[in-house]
């Protein structure tokens, strides 16, 4: 039995008297790739923000690596947010500088980057295939390249858990496919535990090994095969109407 990385017990979150998460129980084990799906405003991002400690739930508990949120070493968690909200595209920084900033928390105050750290940065950049762009300004790259740079920033500190919040929003289909390929490799070859929030229900089944379908309540948690089998039923429950799902074939 693999040990749980994230354990959520009876979690509820209320925004301005409106309950967006209600009685959520969810466990993510080591080495799992969990896809969280659900309609707009279903509380997906809220759940992720609670896991990361940006929001404090009013009820229930979350532990990450066996400790309450906020008490663990932050560098064990890599985070990739929705590209559009995360930075100002005019910011003067190269890919290398941005990726290096992923190490700063782990490095701690008063300590400088050494040659070994810079090699780590180069490795992370190579891992996402951006070596030839390492000295380019991050704002001048394409959306997909920027997102890969942010993955590299999350990977450089060698995290044990990678959390992605709708990482493919605003990225074209071909780049999205490549992006999923990268995630699959990280999961299968490096054994990284991943949590990804997405709109893309069709794609989820092809890359993840656990699905959680959310709309205030948790409607489904299990493997993608079970999700596909009962898809119409679950989605009708969660989305409140019939839904056409576009499948991805690989």
């Amino acid at each position: 039995m693999s040990e749980p990385v994230v354990e959520i017990k009876n979690l509820s979150y209320t925004y301005d008297q409106q309950k967006v998460l209600d009685g959520i129980n969810l466990t993510v084990n080591q080495g799992e790739f969990l896809g969280i799906v659900g309609p707009n405003g279903s509380g997906k991002s809220t759940l992720v923000k609670c896991i990361l400690g940006f929001l404090k739930p009013q009820q229930g508990s979350i532990s990450v690596f066996g400790k309450p949120v906020g008490k663990q070493d932050g560098s064990r968690i890599g985070y990739v947010s929705q590209k559009a909200n995360s930075f100002n595209s005019g910011f003067p920084a190269t890919v290398k500088e941005v990726v290096a900033s992923g190490l700063y928390g782990k490095l701690g105050l008063f300590r400088r980057m050494t040659k070994k750290h810079m090699e780590q940065v180069e490795r992370a950049i190579a891992q996402v295939g951006l070596t030839s762009y390492k000295d380019h300004n991050i704002g001048k790259l394409s959306g997909g390249q920027q997102q890969r740079a942010f993955i590299a920033r999350a990977l450089v500190a060698d995290p044990d858990l990678l959390v992605l919040d709708e990482p493919t929003v605003g990225i074209d289909a071909k780049t999205t496919e490549q992006f999923y390929g990268l995630l699959r490799r990280l999961h299968q070859e490096e054994g990284l535990t991943l949590i990804m929030v997405t709109h893309d229900i069709g794609a989820v089944s092809s890359v993840v090994d656990q699905v959680a379908c959310l709309n205030r309540h948790l409607f489904y948690h299990g493997d993608p095969a079970g999700f596909e089998q009962r898809q119409q039923e679950i989605l009708t429950l969660a989305y409140g109407h019939d839904l056409q799902v576009v499948s991805h074939y690989h």
Partner: peptide, 15 residues
């Protein structure tokens, strides 16, 4: 640098 580029990320990393 980390706080200026992306405050959320910097805070998560423990800065």
């Amino acid at each position: 640098f980390a706080l200026s580029f992306d405050e959320d990320h910097a805070v998560l990393a423990g800065i």
